[in-house]
Structure formats: structure tokens, C-alpha cells
Amino acid sequence: MASSSDTPIRHLLGLEGMPPDQIEPLLDLAENYALLNRSRKVSRDVLRGRTLINLFFEDSTRTRTSFELAGRRLGADVINMSVAQSSVNKGETLLDTAATLNAMQADLLVVRHSQSGAPALLARKVDASVVNAGDGMHEHPTQALLDALTIRRHYGHLAGLTVAICGDVAHSRVARSNIHLLTTMGSKVRVVGPPTLVPGAIRHLGVEIFHTMEDGLKDADVVMMLRLQHERMSSGLIPSPREYFRFYGLNQKRLALARPKALVMHPGPMNRGVEIDSQVADSDQSVIQEQVEMGVAVRMAVLDRLTRSRHSV
């Protein structure tokens, strides 16, 4: 059978429409990197001589560091550009920045931007392979891949699992990418949150909507919490953090409604006491630290895959 794992992938802009036979091999490759990372046996030849530019228009320490580490472990030259020191603040447009970076002949461009679609716009203008490291409310594909890898390591598969994604689904790129990946892989996806943070139209993506944690968490295999951004409160979408925690925070009692040993996940950084209780975050069921570890492995796999695509065509 012909495998899509050989099909060149030019950019990783999102997971919408990515078929299972591309996702599965990517997760296999990441799994492999996870093992190599633990045994410190990664070859630095994979990306030797390649240049990776981390282009972050939005603050991020975790994701940027994760990509940086992934690039370095594979031998790439990594350059970090953050908005604070770039000419974007001087009025240069996104496309001017793209043209400049293009002239520098980067091989891989990792982009985070506050606007949905910004990496797609860049991808049309540069020769480098673009990896979306989070764009507005659109997608955050490497986060969903690392979440999937973490789940797969515990359950051995994704199909048939019930995953509850809880919190600010409306504004979450993490939620969208996870929904695309998990539904494609045959998981049952629920989204849980107050109606102001869970748009009804999200059901078109193949998920079931719940407005109480009690209903949404019942018999779930995975409980995936989302970070509540502070501006959601200032814009009046929820009345207060304490009310949010009271109804939508994850505590031991609510977690007990899920399957025994259900995984607790969070893309970080966590607001302890707002969306998640500290006890739960630090419990045996929490795989939050493992997510971070898998993040590096997944990003190595993505960089490897895109680079091989670039040079096989």
C-alpha cells in the first residue's frame, strides 16, 4: 500500500485535512525521537548546515524554547527573532519581514503570530518551509501532535478514546488543532465550557458540546484543560475567575467522574486555581510534564520531516 509518509510536506500550517496516514508516521517518528532523546543518542547530522529561524510575533517562552531545542538537537543553526527586537515594531509589514528572511535563505521558519492566517500568508511568500507555532485562534499543529503522542503512549491508540477539551474553546488554536487531529484519528471529542467560550458552530467540526463539567467529563479517557486568557475576563465573557473556577475549574471531585486513571493534560502555562486545581495538576493522573517532553520530540519529527521533503523534491 502506498504510504502518505513519503508524500512531501512543504509547510506545516495546520492539521485540518491531514490524513491519518500522514499523522501516524509523524507520531511514530516523534516516538522514536522521544526514545533517542532519553538515551541521548540523537544524530546531529539530520539538520546539519540548515538554518532554522524562530519568528515569534507573540511572546512565548515554552514553545520557542521547545523548537530551539528540537532544532539544535538535530544540528540546525537556530536563530531566535522575537517581536521586541524586530523591525516589525518600526512599521515593517509582515511581508517585508518575510522578504528579508527569504533573502537570508533560511530553510525552516517557525512562526507564531497573534493573527489567524499569518503563517499561511508568509508561506506564500518565502522559499523556506513554514511551521505554524500558533496563529491567532486558528491552529497550533505541533501542540496537537504532542498531545496525541502523549495520549498514544498511554493508551497505545487514539481511536475510540473519549477526549474532553475544557475551557476557552472559542479562542483556542490548541483546541482547533486537537479537534482536527483527534476526530481524524477516530477519537470521540467533547468540548466543555460556558456558552460564551464554546461557540455552537464548533459542532460542525465533529464534536459534542457540553456546558457543565459534570456532564462533559463523565467517562472521559482524557481531560484536556485549556488556559484561560486574562483578556477573556476583561472583555466580559465570564464574570470573574472565582466563578469560572467554581463551575469550570478541574478539581479532584470532577476528575473522579471521568474514567479511573483518565489522563489530565494542559498545554501550559497553567493558571492554578483558575482552570485547574493544584492537586490535580500535580497528581499521578497529570501528564503535563510528559507533554513538554513530547513537545521537543514532536518538533524534531516535524523539522526532520519537512527538511526531508524539501530535499527529496
Binding site: H138, R176, P199, A201, L205
Partner: peptide, 13 residues
């Protein structure tokens, strides 16, 4: 326009 497409693209509806 708020709805399926805007939600999928992550655009304000």
C-alpha cells in the same frame, strides 16, 4: 460571518 467557517478559520465572527 459568525458560523462554521469563521470558527474553523479562527476568525472573529
Amino acid at each position: 460571518t459568525a458560523g462554521n467557517l469563521a470558527t474553523r478559520l479562527g476568525l472573529g465572527g
